[in-house]
Design a protein around this nucleic acid. Structure first.
Length: 286
DNA sequence: CGGGGCTCCTGTGCGC
DNA sequence: TGCGCACAGGAGCCCC
């Protein structure tokens, strides 16, 4: 599922392709996934920027509005050039037997640009969305996100400060709380906790200074590593050019429940925490 | 506040 | 072979 590194990967690709382009027509095959009157509102809008806040994709429009999108679990945004090819040099890949670099049965929204080029929004489960908002709505949405972990703002002091806001929350759930830290989901929460040897059920206020320091470093390290490798392709993630991510080979605990810990060879535990699968090593995460 | 559960949705993989 | 079901889970929502 797309988290900060995967969304950043998509944003990086899109930024190179669609800035300056003007939307022409929207084909909305799944009306629930878009905001009211979407097709009419997107028409003739010019893209002036592509960025990210947490796991949300922000496409800035030249007229002051914003096209926002969330990939949720299985969303994909694919850019096709005027020849209908997914540029970026990626090899075409398939998932559930379908080529993601062309429209298929999971293509929920197609946005055509003037003078060629298309943006495809694929989503098997239809949890993802696209919406157009004005400046005021945008400010309100963005203000609900917590600190960006890959910015200078995410200092050790800042981390301690936000941990103190929710002292009783289990550290894994804390890490996934978008209003506290933006962009971490199930994969990077589990991986960061393993990397820093911290048990996912520890209450935030019980972390020692050294552990907080280590966890912060692990979060930054894992997110940066994943961005460098183009994200993690668990299930259906692909970049905007349809490529799979390379971080999947670096996963140490995620989806490895019941398998040996790569550090101490104990069998990794798997539990449910807040409805989410959580894998950790009960021997080396304390 | 924390915790639990439900909801949206659909493909996959299991047991029988 | 095919049916039924648990599971995957981001995030909003509800209730206790």
């Amino acid at each position: 599922m797309p988290e900060l590194p995967e969304v950043q990967t998509v944003v990086n690709h899109l930024a190179n392709k669609i800035i300056g382009k003007v939307f022409l027509v929207a084909q909305v095959k799944a009306p629930k996934m878009v905001s009211h009157n979407f097709a009419a509102q997107i028409k003739n809008a010019r893209v002036s920027g592509v960025s990210r806040r947490g796991k949300m994709i922000i496409i800035t429009l030249a007229d002051g509005r914003y096209l926002l999108s969330h990939l949720k679990m299985t969303g994909q945004m694919i850019y096709l050039d005027k020849l209908g090819k997914a540029s970026g040099g990626g090899h075409p890949i398939t998932f559930t037997g379908f080529d993601v670099t062309k429209p298929n049965q999971f293509t929920r929204i197609i946005l055509d640009f003037k003078n060629g080029g298309q943006l495809l929004f694929h989503d098997i489960r239809k949890f993802g969305w696209l919406k157009i908002v004005n400046t005021q709505q945008f400010q309100q949405i963005v203000s609900k996100y917590g600190v960006e972990p890959l910015t200078q703002e995410f200092s050790l002091n800042k981390f301690k400060e936000i941990l103190a806001k929710r002292p009783k929350l289990k550290i894994k759930q804390f890490l996934m709380e978008q209003g506290l830290i933006a962009g971490i989901g199930n994969i990077y929460a589990d991986e960061s906790l393993f990397d820093s040897s911290i048990h996912p059920l520890r209450p935030a206020f019980k972390l020692k200074d050294e552990e907080i320091k280590g966890l912060r470093q692990s979060i930054i390290k894992k997110l940066r590593q994943a961005i460098k490798l183009g994200g993690t392709s668990v299930n259906t993630f692909v970049s905007a050019s349809g490529e799979r991510g390379g971080f999947v080979a670096k996963l140490k605990v995620y989806q490895r429940g019941g398998q040996p810990c790569l550090r101490c060879h104990s069998i990794l535990s798997k539990i449910k925490l807040g409805g989410r699968g959580t894998v950790f090593c009960s021997n080396c995460q304390k």
